[in-house]
Amino acid sequence: MKRLTGILLLSLHILAYTECHQLLRIPYLMQHFQQHRTADPHMNFSAFIKIHYLEPVKITDDFKQDQQLPFRNVDCHMINSTVCIYEPATVEIDPPVEIPAVFYCYNETNKPQFSSFGIFQPPRQACII
Rank of each mutant, 00 (worst) to 15 (best):
Q121L: 04
Q113V: 10
E108F: 07
I14H: 05
Q65P: 03
Q113T: 13
L24K: 02
P56I: 00
Q22V: 01
A47K: 09
A89P: 04
Y53L: 07
V74Y: 13
S46H: 11
L8G: 09
C105A: 10
D61K: 08
C20L: 11
L29S: 01
M78Y: 13
K58Y: 04
Q68D: 09
T60L: 07
M1C: 06
T82A: 07
T82R: 09
I129H: 07
M78A: 12
L24M: 08
I79E: 05
C76Q: 15
V97W: 04
Q125E: 11
T90N: 11
N107I: 05
T90E: 12
L23H: 07
N44R: 03
L10R: 01
G118W: 06
T38M: 12
T82Y: 06
E98V: 12
A39F: 03
L4I: 14
G118F: 07
P112M: 02
Q22F: 01
G6A: 08
I85V: 11
L15H: 05
F114E: 11
Y104W: 06
H36T: 02
P96S: 08
Q22S: 10
F33N: 02
F117Q: 14
P123E: 13
D75I: 06
I49Q: 05
N107F: 03
P56Q: 06
T109F: 05
E87C: 02
K50P: 01
I51D: 08
K64S: 14
M43P: 03
N107T: 10
D66M: 13
L9F: 10
P112V: 02
P70R: 00
I14R: 05
T18D: 02
V57L: 11
S81V: 12
C76I: 09
V83G: 03
N73T: 14
Q65C: 06
M1N: 08
C76Y: 04
E92R: 13
N80K: 14
F114P: 04
F117H: 13
